[in-house]
Design a protein around this nucleic acid. Structure first.
Length: 505
RNA sequence: GCGGUUGUGGUCUAGUGGUUAGGACGGUAGCUUCCCAAGCUACCUACCCGGGUUCGAAUCCCGGCAACCGCACCA
């Protein structure tokens, strides 16, 4: 579906809309409505189940969103999220200070004040790369973090976290004490992160407040036991750096085993497979739409030793978009926070060996994936629009309709309550014609509908009564009892289960 | 952030200075023994915000906000 049409559909159905819409909205901020909030929450839960299911030593925590300045200084965000810009006085173009000065100052401009950068502009014959003018000036530094005064006196500063990962690093020592004193230890966070993006775009793709689901796996660099054999033959659509250098855009299907033979560590490839399977088996993205895009040395953030972005081809956004990634971050994070805090963050393993754990990070953009589920799942089929959401991600499992409002509403309510008591989210709709109600549920991705009619009321007890069960994707109908219905609905609400790290490989 | 384009009910849109601002879809209520957006009746909802020009502004001008496209950005 095209971008505008997709966004209009989502707004019309109350899936999402701009924050402060009556004031004209605000760039990069969106609110989820009932259906959107439901889908988003179920994506978060599915993600948690899939990644926490790997091991009993993987935990989800719920840390705060505000970080004291010392934390972001140690993590490097204070310097690296500051990206000084230079403005051309003649053509008004903006450039990164680092870019226009690179010829004269190869060591970069990190840590320099605006005044110091201004001095450099005068000292060297720096020209505007756009128009050649020398009238360059430095605007105030742009920091991608939202920072603010913390406390009454105003002496301290704090920041909204620019990524959830930092919270997990900070939690590591405490989690080590609380846990089994064993590696690997996994810490997951699903929560908001905030970045003051220069140009938010494309609704859920470049937000200023967004939800991340991130797993940090702390492991012993000398030993990371996992059942690699169980994933060795899995094929992955990868686009590695040499192939990219040759100008190729399309991935090659390669087995996990062959990636290891090409030099990637087993533990890294294992998590590539695990994230790939999440996209393919849980979110049910078409495998042909996915590619694992390897970042080169130059593109990678400096502390990442290996980085593959998970990209999915989206019609609405005209190409591949990053929806998640696997980063091998080495010991960068614990060593930086060790220095910053003055604490020793290494741990003693069985046998007495001390080790500063390495970190493998799996990131996942929740909002982007809600958009992608809509992009890949919504299809116009004749005169109806159907959202082919996996049932366990749908905003409701079943729509309940009285065939005729007057005669069947009371009985429909009875079924609605019975289904609700079984823990299955159901929604009643008595408005308009029966066909209209089917259409509404189709568009919201509700996988099943039941209709209460005269025949339902023919049987005396609720247990003997039957309704028409209609399937969203096939439009097929069948007559079922309440017990059959609940069993059927229950079965579709179960997402696939992951392998376990301690599974026999 | 820069440049271009745009902004009319929930959605799509007609409307180039004077209109009761029109239509379609949608929603609500009712009728219709109603299982795939049927039909009939009634009703609901709009000129992005603020200034200016003018006797009069949805329409022209300025500013703001927002969206789209391109550039830049995306530790």
């Amino acid at each position: 579906m095209k971008y505008e049409e997709l966004y209009a559909t989502l707004r019309r159905r109350g899936v999402l809309w701009p924050t402060a819409e009556i004031y004209g909205g605000a760039q990069g901020l969106y609110d989820y409505g009932p259906a959107g909030a439901r889908v988003k929450r179920q994506v978060e839960e599915a993600w948690s189940a899939w990644f926490l299911g790997l091991s009993d030593d993987f935990y989800r925590i719920d840390p705060g969103e505000i970080l004291p300045e010392a934390v972001v200084r140690a993590s490097g965000h204070l310097e690296h999220f500051t990206d000084p810009e230079v403005v051309c006085g003649k053509c008004q173009s903006h450039f990164r200070a680092e870019t226009v000065l690179e010829k004269f100052r190869p060591e970069g401009v990190d840590g320099l004040s605006p005044t110091e950068i201004g001095d450099l502009l005068h000292r060297f014959p720096v020209k505007c790369p756009q128009c050649g003018s020398t009238e360059l000036s430095v605007p105030r530094p742009f920091n991608m973090m939202f920072g603010f005064q913390f406390g009454a006196t105003g002496g301290e500063r704090a920041y909204l976290r620019p990524e959830t990962a930092q919270s997990s690093y900070l939690a590591f020592p405490r989690m080590w004490d609380v846990g089994r004193h064993a590696l690997p230890l996994g810490i997951a966070v699903v929560g908001k992160a905030y970045r003051n993006e220069i140009a938010p775009r494309q609704v859920l793709f470049r937000l200023r407040a967004f939800t991340q689901a991130e797993l940090q796996v702390f492991f012993d660099p000398e030993s990371f036991p996992l059942p690699f054999a169980s994933v060795a033959s899995e094929s992955l659509p990868v686009l590695r750096v040499p192939r990219r250098a040759a100008g190729e855009e399309t991935p090659v299907w390669q087995t996990a085993q062959s990636l290891v033979e090409e030099g990637l560590p087993q533990f890294y490839v294992f998590f590539l497979v695990h994230l790939f399977r999440f996209f393919r088996d849980v979110l049910r993205y078409p495998r042909e739409s996915i590619r694992l895009f390897e970042k080169s040395d130059a593109e990678r953030v400096f502390y990442n030793r290996i980085q593959f972005d998970f990209e999915v081809k989206l019609e609405s956004l005209g190409g591949y978009k990053e929806l998640g990634a696997v980063h091998y971050r080495g010991d960068y994070d614990l060593s930086r926070h060790g220095q910053g805090s003055g604490k020793d963050l290494s741990v003693a393993l069985e046998g007495g060996r001390r080790v500063l754990p390495h970190v493998l990070e799996v990131t996942f953009g929740v909002d982007r994936n809600v958009w992608s589920l809509a992009d890949l799942g919504l299809s116009v089929e004749g005169d109806r629009t159907v959202w082919h959401l996996p049932p366990y991600l749908a905003p409701a499992s079943v729509g309940v309709f009285p065939l005729m409002k007057k005669e069947h509403s009371a009985e429909a309510r009875r079924w609605l309550e019975a289904i609700g008591r079984a823990g299955v989210p159901a929604e009643m709709d008595a408005g308009g014609s029966i066909g209209k109600r089917y259409a509404r549920m189709d568009e919201l991705g509700v996988p099943f509908c039941v209709t209460i009619d005269r025949e339902t009321l023919a049987a005396a007890s609720l247990a003997d009564r039957t309704v028409t069960l209609r399937d969203r994707d096939s439009k097929a109908q069948e007559r079922v009892t309440l017990a059959t219905l609940l069993a059927r609905l229950g079965a579709t609400r179960v997402a696939p289960q992951p392998v376990r790290l301690d599974a026999v490989g």
